[in-house]
Nucleic acid binder design. Structure first.
Lengths: 212, 212
DNA sequence: GCGATGTTTGACCGGATGGTCAGGATCACG
DNA sequence: CGTGATCCTGACCATCCGGTCAAACATCGC
């Protein structure tokens, strides 16, 4: 008999094959639905349908809608911040930053749903992420801003406000995921895939900004 | 007696003082609530409370929640596109584009709720704006892209992909409105107003990108 | 002051939605 | 094959939410 309110859990034992498959399907479906409609706009019925499960079955694996959302957000944070973590203080400055831009643009191309999930969250005031943003993210940005400042002080890149440079990279790359619909509608059917041109454009932009 | 389902309307006569005051209060309140929670996340009760009216009273002035939202979106479109319209083909190229960037950044500073309203809409796939985007907006961008291309062909700015240049301006300036929370949390309390520094950063960025 | 027009509201409705529960089906393992 | 743990579901509940309506209330021109 399960304790009141407890989840499968299995008392710290390894998770069942079925458990892994279903929680995976749920998170995949939830990503699809949350990123397209926002937290409030998504319904458990939609998620259940996409996942191919019944609604009560969702709630067998997760205690609430809120919990699914939070699990998604925190679970995807690493994927989202890894490119910045990979910025190497020992590398060649301009190449390092261009590589960061490229990796971030690849995330927008390959994981647009994840980008929109975060965008939705931050747009609504980041109620569930403000802790991480003011903590881990801020610390990471501080660290890398120091690296960029050092490069600028050494004359290896042009002087630039390091934090706003990072904001610029976020803004420019995430725009192609979050505003994908707008980008495609404005470009029209003649340019069905904006990403190659976007890559060239951003490379040129940051090269001219940073090359000493 | 009013016809079934008809709104105040007043048969094409001038609107009452009360009508103007209340529709104004409703749209102001709706902007506040829609921009903070998205369409689905906002409720008529919240809007009514912020507007200082009762829910049925809202629905006396607007036929539905949808109608309030649509009225907001279309009513604010001009404000949003005017800066790009003002780009003058006869002006000095770099100065014109920098002025556009400045005006757009001022919109982010002075009308962040409007920016978030549009961001929410486009994020969800622009269900209510795809027509305008593929029509008016695309036409406007085409026109101005032509201007920028001509400037580049004449050697008055560096060669640049004109449409992606416009996307870059949108992305960079709107980021400071849409992701305001994140920007402030990352910068910390030491830099309580990001806009002055953002202005300098973006001016430098586009100057270096465009100056021949 | 009076009728007509315009404004406001309490009470209510129907459907959607997050979540619960008791019990049945299925699986893992000895 | 039996038994305990895990997995799944139909039925149900409480609440929220967009929207309606009849009737009360205010305003205004005369």
């Amino acid at each position: 008999m399960r304790a009141r309110g407890a989840r499968p859990v299995n008392e710290a034992r390894t998770r069942t094959r079925i458990q892994r498959r279903n929680t995976g399907a749920i998170l995949e479906a939830a990503l699809e639905v949350f990123s397209a409609h926002g937290f409030r706009g998504a319904t458990l019925d939609q998620i259940a349908e996409v996942a191919g499960l019944s609604k009560p079955n969702l709630l067998y694996y997760f205690p609430s809608k809120e919990a699914i959302h939070l699990e998604l957000l925190t679970g995807l944070l690493d994927l989202w911040l890894d490119p910045l973590r990979a910025l190497d203080p020992a590398g060649e400055p301009v190449a390092e930053i261009l590589a960061y831009v490229r990796r971030k643009l690849e995330l927008s191309r390959d994981f647009p749903r994840e980008s929109r999930l975060f965008a939705n969250e931050v747009l609504q005031g980041a109620p569930r992420l403000s802790g991480v943003i003011a903590g881990d993210l801020r610390a990471l940005v501080d660290e890398k801003a120091g690296v960029i400042s050092a490069w600028a002080a050494a004359g290896r890149i042009r002087p630039v406000h390091p934090r706003h440079l990072i904001f610029s990279i976020w803004a420019l790359t995430q725009h192609y995921a979050d505003f994908d619909v707008q980008v495609r509608l404005v470009l029209g059917p003649a340019e069905p895939d904006p990403f190659p041109e976007a890559g060239r454009h951003l490379t040129a932009l940051f090269t001219r900004l940073l090359a000493p």
